[in-house]
Design a protein around this nucleic acid. Structure first.
Length: 426
RNA sequence: GCGAUCGUGGUGAAGUGGUUAACACAUCGGAUUGUGGUUCCGACACGCGUGGGUUCGAUCCCCACCGGUCGCCCCA
């Protein structure tokens, strides 16, 4: 544009315009509908929190906290952060409002809204992106792990996605993880110098994540690295087995990947990811991820409370639908479009239109003083089912010509019969 | 943070160091002075991301910056 000062939106954000926004509404509606069927209730938390919520909740060693947070001081000097994910906020609210004291347990909650991470944007990754998520707090029953996974798969499948891959793993309990961690440190320390710089740091802080490194993926030490499955306590192993049994009962296909490590510190026991295997999908294939986070509530100063949840990205959801060639049913149409000719007719048209709308019909008219032909074109573009024509002749007789666009048939209808006439024919 | 690639009208897109920047779609107007989706005719970039340089002359060459896209890392 010639305007040097034209302001564009910030990198990694997007405007969702009419034509696109209907799809977002549609997905949101389907999500909320499914939440209702699974009996999850909405919780709305702020879009920013005290930075500490994420430092403690998500974990100091995570990439999110170390380099991706939008953190800023407010005018009162408080350190605030635009939420990079939803679970920590939900946990904070659960503690703050003492939801653990509610009779109803587990607390089954859902949320949807924008999240923020400072990253280089690419296909399926934005700095502001939208997540749908559910969390079940207060139950350590493997059945609810399966319920959360089932929810996620059902949501995708109900919209027609087929090329899905569910990967699950267990990260074990505290005892399992401590033993595994020690074994990992012992295993990798001798070859520490051969690992990438990130992994050298990870080895000290969170050795589990070395396993997940793409750069060192082919290092010989990876093959022989100790697996969490070998360090699971009997309880952990048993828990994982029961989760799988429930998944089998629900007829959900999955593959176990012992190297699946979630990027957030709070996860333990069940971890899972759902990926798209559709042709032509971008480099990022993860549609959603989740897992169990027993201990998170304690980390945020609440009572020991188990929890599990997952979150999906709406952006990636739409990409996956696109990759599989699925069109969402979001056709827009109008019940009635009023074509008015002349000043007096224009005036009357406004009154008639208000009546139509009051009767629950979708109605619109021209506001650019266009010629009749152009008004018809507009009506056609809007997918109007009926066009009401009013000019001097009609005004005189107190009728309107109603044309059914699909058939082309047209009739004169008295003012007071318009609504019935249209409703009978919709 | 690193790498690759691209940046021409509302959209898609051609193009050349030199007087008028193709074409298509969309839009608007007319043929049809009260009727859509077809057809025909016409209109539509004071300008080729921004700034600087080379040149008699740059949209096209060079440099920088900004921005988009894709990828790496990591993740939703």
């Amino acid at each position: 544009m010639e305007e040097i000062t034209m302001i564009n939106l910030p990198r990694g954000t997007q405007d969702i315009l009419p034509g696109e926004s209907e799809k977002w509404q549609y997905l949101e509606q389907k999500f909320i509908e499914l939440c209702s069927r699974y009996n999850y209730k909405e919780i709305r938390t702020p879009i920013f929190e005290h930075t500490e919520v994420f430092q403690r909740g998500v974990g100091e060693t995570t990439d999110i906290v170390q380099k991706e947070m939008y953190t800023f001081p407010d005018r009162g000097g408080r350190q605030l952060t635009l939420r990079p994910e939803g679970t920590a906020s939900v946990a904070r609210a659960y503690v703050q409002h003492k939801l653990h004291g509610q009779v109803k347990q587990p607390q089954k909650l859902f949320y949807h809204g924008p999240m923020f991470r400072y990253e280089r944007p690419q296909a399926g990754r934005m700095r502001q992106f939208v997540q749908f998520g559910i969390e079940a707090l207060g139950s350590a029953d493997p059945a609810i792990d399966a319920e959360v996974i089932d929810f996620a798969m059902t949501l995708y499948q109900s919209l027609g996605l087929k090329s899905l891959r569910l990967v699950i793993n267990t990260l074990g309990d505290h005892e399992s993880r401590t033993a595994h961690r020690e074994a990992l440190i012992n295993h990798f320390t001798p070859v520490k110098d051969e690992l990438c710089s990130d992994c050298q740091v990870r080895l000290d802080k969170n050795p589990l994540r070395v396993l997940d490194c793409k750069r060192d993926h082919d290092h010989p030490s990876m093959e022989t690295a100790p697996k969490i499955l070998d360090f699971l306590t009997n309880d952990s192993r048993d828990y994982f087995e029961r989760v799988k049994k429930y998944l089998d009962e629900l007829e959900i296909d999955y593959v176990v990947d012992p190297n699946l490590v979630r990027g957030l510190d709070y996860y333990n026991h069940t971890a899972f990811e759902i990926m798209s295997e559709a042709e032509g999908f971008g480099a990022i294939t993860t549609l959603s991820g989740g897992g169990r986070f027993n201990g998170l509530i304690e980390e945020l100063d609440g009572p020991a409370t188990p929890g599990i949840g997952f979150a999906l990205s709406v952006e990636r959801f739409l990409l996956a639908l696109d990759a599989e060639g699925i069109e969402l049913p979001v056709e827009q149409s109008l019940d009635a479009y009023i074509v008015a000719l002349g000043e007096e007719a224009e005036l009357k048209a406004s009154g008639l239109m208000k009546n139509l709308r009051a009767a629950g019909l979708q109605a619109d008219k021209d506001f650019l003083a266009k010629k009749m032909k152009a008004q018809f074109k507009a009506a056609d573009r809007e997918n109007a089912k009926f066009v009401l024509i009013i000019g001097d002749q009609e005004l005189e007789k107190e009728v309107v010509l109603i044309k059914e666009m699909a058939s082309g048939t047209q009739e004169a209808v008295p003012f007071d019969s318009i609504i019935n006439y249209i409703k009978e024919r919709l």
